[in-house]
Amino acid sequence: MIKVLYFAWVRERVGVPYEIVETQSRTVMELVEELKQKERRYEVAFSDLSAIKVAINQELCDFDTKLTGATEIAFFPPMTGG
């Protein structure tokens, strides 16, 4: 089980701030594909992956990163702090 979090417009498109997901996916990309097949709102949220960043256990990573040891995974647009 992985806690999946969404922020900013990714959160708005998915419709929830976080959810607990049961998955057999081995990489971030596989999880994204799995979600996209589940419901239309994920397809909308993940339509352009170049506009989305990902963090595993609160550290930035890539879409091909393995989910081994992941307890928390977050999807969000590029940061705009400062």
């Binding site: 922020f7 900013a8 417009w9 963090a55 930035l60 977050a74 969000f76 647009p77 590029p78 940061m79 705009t80 702090g81 400062g82």
Partner: peptide, 26 residues
């Protein structure tokens, strides 16, 4: 620190106007 805060610290700005709102683009 400013350069890294702007694009590596997980903050997202949303501008609210009378016509609605928009997320600030990086």
């Amino acid at each position: 620190l400013m350069d890294y805060l702007k694009s590596r610290a997980p903050f997202w700005k949303k501008e609210v106007t009378k016509d609605g709102y928009q997320w600030v683009k990086s």
